[in-house]
């Protein structure tokens, strides 16, 4: 559904993204993660054809995103939600929904979507809260039943209930064969929805894997409280030290027997071994 090939964008001298390569398969939920300024929104703009890449290209549903006229047809099948947007002023929610749906050529699922995200459509959009505006934008992005969803921070401004509904909805859409490309800061949400994850840092991809592989990439998380302080350099080779505070050491490891044998020499008061969360993997990769 989406292929990025050497996708690069410079804003003058400033780097947007560099040599981004990935592909998103049909029926997949693909999460695009990175800290602020990493290049997530730049990538989304290039995919949507809002900007032209400095080099490389993005193919969206078989069309080069630089070809505006062909992209116009492809956009019929895309549900797009931007991170930052405004509605035209002076209109009621129902007018916005009505006009934009007519221009898109339909809103077959509008009722269903509005049941999920209930809104007072008789209010002017200026009177909407941030969450209500986000729900209206989601209704606009989803109600024409697109095959591909490109969502930039879709849960921004939503309350926990609506957030939960959206995540369930997205998962259900993927089950129905729809493709979801989304960016988010909230890693627990990503973990609920994504099949594959792409992490970017300073405009470059630093990890691109399916969720289970990414979570096991660094091994398990080992939290140890020792009887006496230890020179952690001694653990190098069998584990990666994530943090140390006095006698408490947090490690990432996959060679447990060697690690435990080494630690046992120093006396272990307490030990906890568990899978890493996406947040811990994310933090580790970005702190490197």
């Amino acid at each position: 559904m989406i292929v990025a090939e050497g996708l690069t964008k410079f804003y003058g001298e400033r780097v947007g993204i560099v040599d981004i390569d990935f592909s998103v398969r049909k029926g997949e939920a693909f999460a695009y993660l990175g800290p602020n300024g990493a290049g997530k929104t730049t990538t989304v703009r290039l995919l949507m054809g809002f900007m032209r890449p400095t080099r490389g290209r993005a193919i969206v549903m078989g069309v080069d995103s630089r070809d505006d006229r062909k992209m116009a047809r492809v956009r019929e099948e895309i549900g797009y939600l931007a991170e930052d947007f405004s509605f035209p002023r002076g209109l009621k929610g129902k007018e916005i929904l009505g006009y934009y749906s007519r221009i898109r050529g339909g809103a077959g699922r509008a009722e269903e979507i509005l049941e999920l995200f209930p809104l007072d459509l008789n209010k002017k959009v200026e009177e909407y809260s941030k969450g209500m505006r986000q729900m209206l934008a989601l209704a606009l992005a989803l109600s024409h039943d697109p095959d591909l969803l490109i969502l930039d921070e879709p849960t921004t401004g939503l309350d926990p209930l609506m957030r939960d509904r959206l995540l369930n909805f997205l998962r259900e859409e993927v089950r129905r064969g729809k493709t979801v490309f989304f960016s988010s800061h909230v890693l627990s949400e990503v973990q609920r929805v994504a099949d594959r994850i792409c992490l970017i840092k300073e405009g470059r991809i630093v990890a691109l894997e399916d969720l289970p592989s990414l979570l096991s990439k660094l091994g398990k998380l080992v939290k140890v409280r020792l009887k006496e302080p230890l020179d952690v350099r001694r653990l190098e080779g069998v584990a990666r030290v994530l943090s140390q505070e006095g006698r408490e050491v947090v490690l990432a490891a996959d060679r447990y027997s060697e690690l435990l044998a080494l630690l046992a020499e120093h006396g272990v008061e307490d030990v906890e071994i568990r899978n890493m969360t996406l947040e811990e993997v994310f933090m580790h990769i970005y702190k490197r």
Partner: peptide, 17 residues
């Protein structure tokens, strides 16, 4: 300037249209 672009430019219309 008014950040209405995400809605308008994601419509199935070419820029020329």
């Amino acid at each position: 300037l008014e950040r209405t672009g995400p809605l308008n430019l994601s419509l199935p219309l070419s820029r020329r249209d």
